[in-house]
Amino acid sequence: PSSDNATAIVAFVIRNGNQSLVQFEMFRIQKMIEIRVNGRTIEYTPLTTENIEFFTTSQLIYSDDHQLNIRQTSLTSFEISYGETSMQFIVNARSAFDFLDLLFILPRDLMKNGQPRGLMGDLDGLVYENGTRVLSATMTNDQSLFEYGESWRTTSATSLFYYNSPNSYATYQNTKYRPAFHQTLLQKYNGTSRFTMAQQSCQNLKDSQRCVYDVLITNDPTLSLMHKQFDTNMVTWESYIKQVEEDIANQPSKATTNTISKLLIGWACAHLFFIFH
């Protein structure tokens, strides 16, 4: 077995104010994603290659009175939205059901005025749980970033996850775990066919270093496809936001009344692929 370890998202929980808890958990062997709302499993018929033709855009699989909507938008993609707040989470799973690609879209005003706290920090960068801001030099130091992630480790009292018996919070805790850091991994495989394969798979990407790490750690060149899809999505979103900005500039009278345009311009996106938890 390989001694290379990395952290990947296979499950997450979202809590938005006093609204329902939404939990996604991926099961690789069963090739399925389990969705829970307030601990209750949501029963739905997943999109398949056989039935997807009956859904022209997406399939609504959950909705409630608090404007929480969950849709399946493709065979392995989901969208979680919160009505008028314009908060949106986009979930893309690999077809092998071994990795999640999670993006979130938030109104900039919410980030500015809502005093956000958490692993992803705020608009000005990362912040430790005690309020200390992460120095810019730390952002390139794997050990420091790992320690930052550990500072946000949950406890049994603060965890939002629903655990199926006999599992519990303790089942998923391994305080001795250490990932293979970026520089260490590059040094280990430098000059090997595996390193060449990773470089070739990840060429012409905006964040080729992260892609190379992911391909090296898994020895799977198809992981680069997730990074390529993310780059494609970012180009689409940036183009759309630019168009909205131009529309407002050309029609200033609508700038104060077009709430949707304000929110679109204020979207902040974060790409979470490998994170320390």
Rank of each mutant, 00 (worst) to 15 (best):
Q19W: 06
D65Y: 03
N233T: 13
G39A: 04
R40L: 10
F161C: 00
F104C: 03
N204M: 03
Y189C: 09
L106D: 09
L205H: 05
G39Y: 02
L123T: 08
I70E: 04
M234N: 10
I70W: 02
T132V: 14
Q72I: 01
A96I: 14
L223Q: 13
C269L: 14
W237S: 14
S3V: 12
D231I: 05
L106G: 07
D98K: 15
N164M: 05
N5V: 15
M32W: 01
D109C: 04
V235K: 07
T218C: 08
E25W: 04
S208L: 04
R71S: 03
L160W: 00
D101M: 07
D122E: 09
E238G: 02
T85S: 14
A93G: 14
G266P: 01
S144V: 12
M120Q: 11
T76I: 08
S193I: 02
T76M: 06
M226L: 14
I52R: 13
K176Q: 13
E43Q: 11
T57N: 15
S2H: 10
F195S: 12
K31G: 10
T48L: 09
M26G: 06
V91Y: 00
L272A: 12
T73K: 04
S201Q: 07
S239F: 03
S77M: 06
K31P: 07
P46V: 12
M234H: 04
Q59W: 00
L145H: 06
A268M: 11
D64G: 03
Y148L: 02
R133E: 06
Y44H: 08
E246A: 13
I105E: 09
S95D: 15
S144F: 08
G149C: 13
Y148P: 01
S159D: 10
